[in-house]
C-alpha cells in the first residue's frame, strides 16, 4: 500500500541510462478478423521517456497503446510492462492496469459520481486506501490540474477541457508509472486544447513516462523525446521531433506531414 507522502510528492525521474525498459514490445501482431491491424511492432520505452505517436487514421496507433494495458489483446509477440508480461492471466493484467494510467479521447468520466468520487473510486477500491487519505490525494491532484473548486460537481456540469483535466487527475491518483494518452485533445473545442496540453506538459516536466497518440505537433516538439510515425499498422519511422518535422526519412512521413501541416 502507498503512504500518502510518497503518493503526493513526485519522485524525479531516474537517469535513463542502464534503467530497464518500462515497456517492451517485441514482434507484436494483431488482427481484427482478416484485417491486420498491427504488424510486427517492436518498441522499447525507457523510464521517464515521452513518446508521441502519430499517423493517419486507421494506422493502428490507438490499438497499439491500448494493447499496453490490454484493452486490446495482441495475438502474437511479447509485451512486457514494468517487468510483467501481458498474458491471459487476469491477475497480472489488473496488476499492470493499476500502474498504467490512461486518458481517453472522450474522457470517460463516471457521470453518476462527483468529481471527487471519480478521483477516489479506484484508490479506495483498488488500492484499499482510507477515504480520508484518498480524498486528500484527490484534492492535491485537482489542485494540480487547477480545478479544486469543482470537486463536488458532476462531470456533466464541467466543460470538455475541465473534464479531460479531471480524467488526467483521476489517472494520477493511482500514482501510475506510465501514462497513456489516446488523442486527449481531439474531442475538445479549440479554445480548450491549450489548458489540457499545459497540464500534460507540466506532467512531462516532472518526469512521467508518457505515450501520447496526438496530432498536436507543437506539443510533440516541446516535450517528446521521440516521435513514432505509424501507417497501416506498421511503425514507419522513429525519430527525434526536431528531425522528424524538418527532414523525415520516409516518403510516407513526408506525405503525412505535408497533409497535416497544410
Amino acid at each position: 500500500m502507498l503512504n500518502s507522502v510518497s503518493a503526493i510528492r513526485h519522485v524525479p525521474s531516474l537517469p535513463m541510462t542502464n534503467d530497464p525498459a518500462v515497456v517492451e514490445m517485441v514482434g507484436v501482431n494483431k488482427w481484427y478478423g482478416a484485417f491486420h491491424s498491427l504488424k510486427n511492432i517492436d518498441l522499447t520505452i525507457q523510464r521517464g521517456e515521452k513518446l508521441v505517436i502519430c499517423g493517419p487514421s486507421g494506422s493502428g496507433k490507438s490499438t497499439m497503446i491500448r494493447c499496453i494495458n490490454r484493452l486490446e489483446e495482441h495475438q502474437q509477440g511479447r509485451i512486457v510492462v514494468d517487468g510483467i508480461e501481458l498474458t491471459g492471466d487476469l491477475k497480472k493484467i489488473d496488476e499492470i492496469r493499476r500502474d498504467v494510467g490512461m486518458v481517453f479521447q472522450h474522457f470517460n468520466l463516471f457521470p453518476h459520481l462527483t468529481i471527487l468520487e471519480n478521483l477516489t473510486l479506484a484508490p479506495i477500491w483498488v488500492r484499499k486506501m482510507r477515504r480520508k487519505e484518498a480524498e486528500q490525494i484527490a484534492m492535491h491532484y485537482l489542485d494540480r490540474v487547477k480545478i479544486p473548486d469543482q470537486a463536488h460537481k458532476y462531470p456533466g456540469q464541467l466543460s470538455g477541457g475541465q473534464q479531460q483535466r479531471v480524467a488526467i487527475a483521476r489517472s494520477l491518483c493511482m500514482s501510475p508509472k506510465i501514462m497513456l494518452f489516446d488523442e486527449p485533445t481531439s474531442a475538445l473545442d479549440p479554445e480548450m486544447v491549450k489548458e489540457v496540453l499545459d497540464t500534460m506538459v507540466s506532467l512531462a516536466e516532472e518526469g512521467m513516462t508518457m505515450l501520447c497518440v496526438s496530432h498536436e505537433m507543437g506539443f510533440a516538439r516541446q516535450v517528446a523525446d521521440r516521435v513514432v510515425f505509424m501507417d497501416q499498422g506498421e511503425i514507419v519511422e522513429i525519430n527525434t521531433p526536431a528531425e522528424f518535422f524538418s527532414s523525415p526519412h520516409h516518403e510516407r512521413s513526408k506525405l503525412f506531414l505535408a497533409q497535416i501541416l497544410h
Partner: peptide, 16 residues
C-alpha cells in the same frame, strides 16, 4: 463501452 474501459484502465476488477 468507454465506461468499462475507464474502469478497467484504473484496475477495477469485473464485479467491482
Amino acid at each position: 463501452n468507454g465506461q468499462y474501459e475507464a474502469a478497467a484502465s484504473l484496475g477495477l476488477p469485473f464485479w467491482r
